[in-house]
């Protein structure tokens, strides 16, 4: 559950860590392969333990069983229909968070009065553990789609708001002065200086938000859900189907990985002006 979160955090804090290993010391091929020896060994041990009855399949399904189960879940459409529902929830929640987070950050970042009105309540709400709102959300919004989507939205709004606000605040005042001496209007300054300047921070926020959205979804889908990956896993629990639970876990993991990669690709395109500097810095 917290794995997605930590992974997003690690990536966001040190975006250079991955690029360094890619460009850094050239490892011989066997050394690259050696990184995978221990995971593969663990899988084999796991399979042996299950096959010999050392590990009860009530506690954990064997790797082979997981593969077979995923295949059948894909074939009878269960996995894909549940995945679709989960994706839709995450996407809608994220969309609400992005729109609301960006709007609030702009209000707080671009006007003094806006900051006074918006920032304090958001900072207070930020300290609340969002998951503690689940009972209230069920009371308010029932057990349909609304509480699930809103939970995702509420969880992922804060990283977007906070990072974008920080980005707006940390625009180089020298650039703003320059824009002023060129006679740019306020609208032009916001459009050409402030927003592009804050974009890198917004994207960092978006990466955190994507990580948190999966976290929220996992919790939301295990409460009174009738569909979705989380519901599929809760259903499986009733029938002691550890294989289905593990398939669900893998799907969540994959979703986190893929969505993080999507944001990174987005960064690569939107921040092309920065990538130039990085690659130049590495070659010289």
């Amino acid at each position: 559950m917290s794995e997605t979160f930590i992974r997003a955090a690690v990536h966001a804090v040190s975006p250079s860590s991955t690029s360094r290993s890619a460009v850094g010391l050239p490892f011989p091929r066997w050394q690259i392969l050696s990184r995978y020896v221990s995971p593969v060994l663990l899988m084999i041990l796991w399979q042996i333990a299950c096959s010999t009855g050392l590990l009860s399949t009530r506690l954990i399904a064997s790797p082979a069983q997981i593969v077979v189960t995923s295949w059948s879940l894909i074939n009878d459409g269960t996995l894909l229909s549940n995945l679709g529902v989960s994706l839709l929830r995450a996407a809608l929640g994220l969309l609400i968070a992005i729109v609301a987070g960006i709007s609030l950050a702009l209000v707080a970042g671009l006007s003094r009065i806006g900051e006074d009105i918006v920032d304090a309540p958001l900072q207070i709400m930020r300290t609340l553990p969002v998951l503690a709102l689940v009972p209230l959300f069920i009371l308010w919004f029932g057990i349909g789609e609304a509480p699930k989507i809103l939970l995702v939205a509420l969880g992922s709004i804060f990283p977007i708001y906070l990072n974008l606000l920080k980005g707006i605040r940390s625009i180089d005042p020298k650039l703003l002065e320059m824009a002023q001496t060129l006679g740019l209007s306020r609208r032009q300054i916001i459009q050409d200086v402030i927003l592009p300047g804050a974009l890198p921070d917004l994207l960092v926020g978006l990466r955190f938000a994507v990580g948190i959205s999966w976290l929220m979804l996992v919790v939301a889908e295990q409460i009174n859900a009738e569909s979705g990956i989380g519901h599929m896993m809760m259903d499986a629990e009733d029938f002691l189907r550890t294989d289905i639970i593990l398939v669900g876990l893998f799907v969540y993991g994959l979703l986190g990985l893929v969505s993080d990669q999507l944001v990174r690709t987005l960064e690569h395109h939107l921040l092309a002006w920065r990538c130039v500097r990085h690659s130049r810095g590495l070659t010289t």
């Binding site: 650039l175 320059m178 824009a179 060129l182 200086v193 592009p196 002006w273």
Partner: peptide
């Protein structure tokens, strides 16, 4: 013209020149 060029790093050179 300032001591630092104060170009917007996210705009290409020609876009910086005709900025505004």
């Amino acid at each position: 013209v300032f001591q630092e060029s104060r170009l917007l790093p996210w705009k290409r050179v020609w876009q910086n020149v005709v900025l505004g």
